[in-house]
Design a protein around this nucleic acid. Sequence first.
DNA 1: TGTTACAATGTGAACGTTCACATTTGAGAT
DNA 2: ATCTCAAATGTGAACGTTCACATTGTAACA
Lengths: 341, 341
Amino acid sequence: MITKKRVTIKDVAAEAGVSYQTVSRVINNSNRVTDETRQKVTEVIEALNFRPSLAARNLSSQLTNIIGLIIPYSADYLIRDPHLLAQISGIDAECSANDYNLLLSTAGNSASGMKAFNRFLTQKIADGAIVVETADSTTGNDLLAKQDDPYIVIGYDIYNKNGYMVHSDDRQGAKEATLHLIERGHQRIGLINGPASGAIRSTDERLLGYKIALESAGLSFETELVVRGDYTRPSGQHATKQLLALDTPPTAIFALNDRMAIGAIQTIQTHGLTVPQDIVVVGFDDIPAAADFIPSLTTVSQPSRALGRTAAQILLKLIAGKPVKDHEVILPAKLIIRQSS
Amino acid sequence: MITKKRVTIKDVAAEAGVSYQTVSRVINNSNRVTDETRQKVTEVIEALNFRPSLAARNLSSQLTNIIGLIIPYSADYLIRDPHLLAQISGIDAECSANDYNLLLSTAGNSASGMKAFNRFLTQKIADGAIVVETADSTTGNDLLAKQDDPYIVIGYDIYNKNGYMVHSDDRQGAKEATLHLIERGHQRIGLINGPASGAIRSTDERLLGYKIALESAGLSFETELVVRGDYTRPSGQHATKQLLALDTPPTAIFALNDRMAIGAIQTIQTHGLTVPQDIVVVGFDDIPAAADFIPSLTTVSQPSRALGRTAAQILLKLIAGKPVKDHEVILPAKLIIRQSS
DNA sequence: TGTTACAATGTGAACGTTCACATTTGAGAT
DNA sequence: ATCTCAAATGTGAACGTTCACATTGTAACA
């Protein structure tokens, strides 16, 4: 380890011939300093290569200027989620703009994952936290509700009635997608569902959107047209086989995520049918592959980056003690029509 | 802001009837404490909901227990890079295991991006940094070389001769991919190259691997078979059109990344040809879409997670002042044979 | 029974900054 | 020339922990 003695605010002060407090004012851009003094101090800072100690600042100011980003994904899941980076990007943009740093804390179900999570919770390491809600997030979130620091969930905070959350309008997105299919004349619309109801709020919301659309069009909801999947491509393939095996197969399939939708298209093609000529397919999420796939996939795009940005904005307000009126912010999802429909 | 007074080590000490140093020993798992004392203190910590102040710890210990992750991507690029999350995941795993926190700092070319980067550089915010080298990383890395804290580059550190770097064996991966095609009997192998030579080391390495493979098989390197792309899918399509327009078109195409390979397949199909029957295609990267695409894409997989993990391991050694012998660690890339070849 | 040695615990100082307040400086009004 | 007031700058204390060293307690030994 380099044991070179650290350059402190006092070293700078001595060299510049001012008091340390003046140096402090300079590095904090306080306006209570003459331009002349500021100039001189700045030069010395440059010359001595002085870097203020964040730790000392934090200790003194009682703030860390760090926002924790808690991602309760297992590593594999994390890699596969295209939203996540977009969300992070939005969060990061907002944090950067406000001189906040972003501390990443993935917290899987593994021991080491929970360790990171615990460390985050048990140490005053950040001024607040953004939690990304996922299918995997069975543990941990409930713990968050108990501690003092403000936090906000991207997704649905099912553990804290008074919590803050930001999510996209899954219901409206699914409704639009379904209406889009109905408008194209489809009456029997198969739905590839997510895992068991209640586990993931977004799944329920999307399903609800589907139902509402049917209802508003005067179509009946038919149980046989709803097949369960688990958000993986193979499950989409499997579900599609079931749908195609029906006495009257659907003429359109709405998969609750893109990966399953791609699986659906593949299975349809395997059966000698063409998309969109024979069967139309719509997905949800707008993953990068959706645009690249042939046929390109009609899907519902979530405003991932905006979600991240909004979550960060609200959290920063909470940290600053400013009032935040809405506990739940819902951003609109957007239907993107491509070749598959 | 909640202004509740903070519970400190001294509050715990008073309550438990011991000195604050003893409390410190307990929270640091020092073995110089009786089980009895430890128990009592632990109970009080629990009861008072004491959380040690990271800032105070850092200030005292002169370490932050934070590793900075600098990602010089622009936001859009960041979202599209499937490696990145895998790398982060590996880094995070290693950090977690060693009680280190991971601070994210994306640093694009934008003003706000550079701001984050500067903040990182000008404040003692982390004990060390991991820099992800990218096509975008034209600025910034050179600055890193000038400062004291240890850092390591995932990719090729072209700014610092004495720097540390970890990357996958692009050359060997490309060589294997090319040999794979040669073994299948292909003599004319088109190559969809990356942007201008010299800009990205990995591109050069991959191209070199291609050349070496040709040479080792006694095949000549033909300039007309090498077409420039820019790592986007459309550029792959465009390049493929050029290759197919040759008097003697190649029977195999090796694209230096998957996105261009997918573009190549699409163009080949548009021309009424089939993959792999008429033309064989190989990519590089193994993005998620590579496995989903039809035909699934033969490609070279980078050990992204291992890269992250290794980088973190080395950085932690550097921070601890332990000797690190190799300045450049190269992890093997792996050819994944799928339908497209 | 006194000495030794080491384990357990306690005390003062230090880490580098910001905060709250005190002091100095200088320009304008009298 | 003196006074006033605000702007500029300076000083002591505090933030909560760890480090280095000091003290106490206790078991093992001669």
